[in-house]
Amino acid sequence: MRPYTYAAPGTVREALALAGDGSAYLAGGTTLVDLVKLEVMTPEHVLDITRLPLRGVAVRDGALRIGALERMADVAEHPLVAGPYPVLAEALLRSASPQIRNMATIGGNLLQRTRCGYFRDTASACNKRVPGSGCPALTGENRMHAILGTSDACAATHPSDLAVALVALDASVHLASRDGERSVKLADFYLLPGGTPEKENALRPGELITSVSVPALAWAERSTYVKVRDRSSYEFALTSAAVALDLRDGVVRAARVAAGGVGTRPWRLPAVEAALTGAPAREDAFEAAAAKAADGARPLAHNAFKPELLRRTVVRALLELAGRS
């Protein structure tokens, strides 16, 4: 760990004024503290934002709005979340452990760093950590790595479950900087690695996530988050699927499908959604739609199973939703 200064601003304005080169915001600390100890992140200034008034879960103009500093555990249990958006609650509850969910915040969850072992090991090269140093994952251990959105510079999987569910729901993040406030669709917020995997999102220097909003979607009541993993709990996804279905009279009127564990960012599957629309709620139709789930996948030596597992994960989620009354 390198020495850093610490400040705990009381207002967003104050936080933004203090932010600058070499600063990092600290919320739940479940990513930052780990990575600082490993010297993967070496901020010079740590700005503790847990006193900022970025809390609250509410419905405004039909949209669900979640303060960036709300804790994962609290959001998962919130009646405005658990009932209308099961996919969000399930994605949260299938993340991490109760201890971590009690600390980690929604904004921090969206900004958590990849679990790629080379990224987290300062003895290894990593284009994300040290641009231009190389990517050992492409030829090394890559069972957990991405198959979608990868580049010759990086195949690190985006680790967030929540982000997958939010992308499926067309959510936006609301940002504040010294230049003012703006909103960005979460699907556009995350960047593909390309040749600059160190640049992971659209945040400008010093910019802060203040809240997340989810547009109204009545049929999101029929939604789920299926997470396939080696271990029953406390483990990242091999593959996951966030799915919502508008199902009437045994026919899919509309669908939202996004995948996790497979992409360098949360991966919306519009081709699957289109194939589902108007399809009967039957396994063969689900299989036909899910066949498109891994289109464009570029598997590596150890994750060649992921395209098939992803297709099956999507089918499984669809079957679970179709089976709900």
Binding site: R115, G117, R120, E141, D230, R231, S232, S233, Y234, E235
Partner: peptide, 16 residues
Amino acid sequence: IANANFADYLVPVNAD
């Protein structure tokens, strides 16, 4: 050893 830590070398948790 690519998974020399408790996040990547998995041991059972209670749920298993």
